[in-house]
Design a protein around this nucleic acid. Structure first.
Length: 362
DNA sequence: AATGAAGGCAACCGCAGAAGG
DNA sequence: GCCTTCTGCGGTTGCCTTCAT
């Protein structure tokens, strides 16, 4: 304890290494071995501290260093080991011949971590992000919405039922000719209100289960730096645009955990830093996780004992023509995640963004 | 073509544990 | 057993390059 850092010694050079210095260090170690790192610089004729020499050697000059891009296999190995070991870069590096801990660490921070975040995974736990703060922007938007709903409902009692009835009417009849003039507009608005009210309820129940569930949910704890990070990421994501028209991939949150029947899905926009997710991205990411695109379970693929998420795939593919049905299905699906400790992320942002009615709020 | 932002990477810093006297 | 020194590790910083506007 209390030992002053070796590099505090005055007069020692810092910063980037010159080719001459590299050559001196290389020649000395090849000839004598590194021995004591503290005495090495003097013996090698270098005006550097031993620590700096060791770092330069281990991270750059060592002959068995493999340089260049990481292969798919190496990426998978890193992901897998990181899910088990965490930030034990040196331990991970021992499984990747020719790669240094520093290189792996950099690769993780600049590539893999971001990719996991984009996919909606927590880079530390390798679990889907379900924490409260990640959903904060949506909650704020919904809170605003709720106020408006309340204001609307105040006019006449039982507004919800009225809206539901109107919505049902619209769903049955108004799809065709747009025919009802002003009355149809009102009914459409009412249907949307009802739709959003369902979403609100579903979101509330989901958050309740995620926040209070304790257990295996992984969330619900005190706010950590990572939570704050997640909130910021989500805040940024909340402004993202919708998927491009024509994307062949149904965007739902359930995906990473369950892709069934050859259907590939990904996480919702709200959990992603990338505004646009293409089917190619999804395939690539699943491949990266060691999963075939056709329905493999990503959790088990990288060594996780991650719990399954509620599968909404059938909901999104079969009932989106009727938001009311979708609401009830969503509510039940989201509640089923709570019992096992896993909560499902929020499915609605992608649908929201397709609707100008919603984009006005976001 | 100029400029600012973002990404990528090498290197530094500080801490903790191991080793040696 | 205690103190000092050395080594290794993980986090962070700063510089250089590339990309976008």
């Amino acid at each position: 304890m209390g030992r002053s850092p070796c590099c505090d010694e005055s007069g020692l050079k810092k910063g980037p290494w010159t080719p001459e210095e590299d050559e001196k260090l290389l020649h000395y170690i090849q000839k004598n071995g590194h021995g004591s790192w503290r005495t090495l610089p003097r013996l090698a004729g270098l005006n550097r501290c031993g620590k700096s020499c060791r770092l330069r050697w281990t991270n750059y000059l060592r002959p068995d260093i493999k340089r260049g891009k990481f292969s798919q296999e190496e990426e998978q190995t890193i992901l897998h080991l990181h899910s088990i070991l965490g930030n034990k870069w040196s331990a991970i590096a021992t499984h990747l011949p020719g790669r240094t801990d520093n290189e792996i660490k950099n690769f993780w921070n600049t590539h893999l971590k971001k990719r996991l975040i984009q996919m909606g995974f927590d880079p530390m736990t390798h679990r889907p992000r379900t924490d409260f703060f990640a959903a904060l922007p949506q909650l704020i938007a919904l809170a605003t919405l709720r106020d408006q709903l309340a204001a609307t409902a105040c006019g006449g009692g039982g507004g919800g039922d009225t809206a539901a009835a109107a919505a049902a009417q619209i769903m049955q009849g108004a799809g065709g000719g747009g025919g009802g003039g002003g009355g149809a507009d009102v009914a459409i608005q009412a249907a949307k209100m009802q739709y959003l009210q369902c979403l609100l309820q579903s979101a509330a129940s989901t958050i309740a289960s995620a926040g209070s569930g304790g257990g295996g949910g992984g969330g619900g704890g005190a706010m950590s730096a990572h939570d704050a990070d997640a909130a910021l990421a989500a805040a940024a994501a909340a402004t993202c645009s919708s998927s491009p028209a024509g994307s062949s991939v149904p965007i739902t949150p359930t995906a990473v955990g369950h892709s069934g029947g050859g259907q590939t899905q990904t996480t919702p926009c709200a959990f992603s830093e990338a505004p646009v997710i293409t089917s190619d991205d999804v395939e690539a990411n699943l491949r990266l996780l060691g999963c075939g695109g056709g329905g493999a379970d990503a959790f088990t693929c990288h060594g996780g004992s991650l719990p399954p998420l509620a599968d909404l795939s059938d909901v999104t593919t079969t009932t989106m023509t009727n938001p009311l049905d979708w609401c009830s299905a969503t509510a039940s699906a989201s509640s089923c995640g709570g019992g096992g400790g896993a909560s499902s992320p929020f499915p609605w942002p992608e649908f929201f963004h397709d609707d100008p009615f919603i984009t006005d709020f976001l």
